[in-house]
């Protein structure tokens, strides 16, 4: 019974990571040249950067409060805050470079009006580009991505620690788990996405299906990884 619960928790963690990546404004190589909206690097790099920061902050919290089940919400919150901080700082620094370095206005090419600020977007998109910078809606979306990714990553880490009681082994397994789910999401969005207002976001259910099966497989495997007996 307990084993099934652990597998279930790991699966939820994996699915959260896959969902999180769909929220993060990933611009890829075109964004590095300010030719599309989002941060100018790949999905896996962004997801890994924020996910690993989440793991570190969750691990730090676990170190100070102990990994009792009653402390789980605290650990998850700590992981979420870590990941959100990392992705927000990345987006903020990206925007500073785009605005003051490249000299472009953060604007989305996928919507005419920003769903949050209601500001006009299409007038500010430079000709020949797919938008540039990180507009408000993408920033908010990215923060939600950090929240989900942080919770997912720290949930995986906490569950693994519950299984094998070895922080180093849990950490490296959680990183592998994170990579796998981030790449599945990355294939689903095909390289770039602006956030939850992007039409590509509707593809999310497909990635959830793949992530569920993949996470289930890896979770079953994970239960056997420990230095104890069978």
């Amino acid at each position: 019974m307990e084993v099934i619960l652990l597998i279930l928790l790991l699966m939820i963690g994996g699915i959260l990571v896959t969902a999180a990546v769909h929220f993060v404004p990933v611009g890829g190589a075109p964004a590095a040249m300010a030719q599309t909206t989002g941060v100018g690097t790949g999905t896996t790099m962004l997801a890994t950067g924020s996910g690993l920061t989440g793991l570190v902050s969750a691990g730090f919290m676990m170190e100070s409060v102990g990994y009792d089940i009653s402390n789980l919400p605290l650990v998850l919150a700590s992981g979420a805050v870590g990941a959100m901080l990392m992705i927000c700082i990345t987006m903020l620094m990206g925007n500073i470079v785009y605005i003051f370095g490249v000299g472009v206005v953060p604007s989305s090419a996928k919507v005419k009006f920003d769903p949050i600020t209601k500001l006009r977007q299409d007038l500010y998109v430079s000709k020949g580009t797919e938008g540039h910078g990180i507009p408000t809606v993408s920033f908010v979306s990215g923060t939600i991505g950090g929240l989900l990714g942080g919770i997912g990553g720290s949930l995986v880490y906490w569950t693994l620690l519950e299984i094998n009681h070895n922080p180093a082994m849990s950490g490296i397994f959680a990183i592998g788990f994170f990579f796998l789910n981030a790449v599945i999401a990355s294939y689903n969005i095909g390289g770039t996405i602006e956030g939850f207002h992007d039409p590509k976001f509707k593809r999310l259910p497909k990635a959830i299906v793949v992530s569920t099966v993949a996470s289930l497989m890896c979770s079953i495997v994970a239960v056997f990884i420990s230095t104890g007996g069978l």
Binding site: G28, A29, G42, T43, T44, M45, T48, I175, G176, F177, F178, F179, L180, A182, V183, I184, S186, Y187, G190, G191
Partner: peptide, 12 residues
Amino acid sequence: TGVPSIGILAIG
């Protein structure tokens, strides 16, 4: 998604 994604998937 670029070549790195498949390498990252592989080590995952």
